[in-house]
């Protein structure tokens, strides 16, 4: 018999919540036991959803990274470079390391460029769509 990690974590959480915590007399320690159960439940959800979430994030970022260059006016073919160096290098880093956290540098660079510029605003909109999907996935675990 073997457990999937999320199943084991879930059962540990249940044991803590239903049997161990209620048996603890000290109020503070009882609270700690309940909190350990809450944490294990979230870890169980992370284990259950992790692979699916990572795949969704990778797909979102691939699509975004390929679209952002065009949005901000970086055209590799013609060497036309509307965006400043800060934006271009942040986008290059995103393409090298397609991770949601890399989007932070792109966002910062876009604000430095000027969010009122149509190209920067359009780029932020595209990024925000991805960030909304990302935070919704994280909320599946955090709720």
């Amino acid at each position: 018999m073997s457990f999937e990690s999320h199943e084991l974590l879930g059962r540990l959480a249940e044991g803590l919540r239903r049997e161990i915590a209620p048996a603890v007399d000290d109020e503070y320690l009882r609270t700690q036991a309940h909190m350990a159960a809450v944490i294990l439940e979230r870890l169980a959800r992370e284990a259950a959803l992790g692979e699916r979430h990572r795949a969704a994030e990778a797909a979102d970022l691939a699509e975004l990274a390929s679209g952002l260059g065009e949005i901000v006016g970086i055209d590799g073919a013609s060497q036309s470079q509307a965006a400043p160096e800060g934006v271009r290098s942040a986008l290059a880093r995103l393409q090298d390391d397609p991770d949601v956290m890399s989007l932070g540098l792109v966002v910062e660079a876009l604000y430095r460029w000027g969010p009122e510029r149509p190209a920067a605003a359009a780029a932020l909109d595209a990024i925000r769509s991805v960030l909304r999907r990302d935070i919704d996935r994280r909320m599946d675990i955090a709720r």
Partner: peptide, 14 residues
């Protein structure tokens, strides 16, 4: 940190 936080801070400063 997180990109949403970067967005929020950028917006707030602006």
């Amino acid at each position: 940190g997180h990109p949403i936080l970067a967005d929020l801070i950028g917006w707030l400063r602006h």
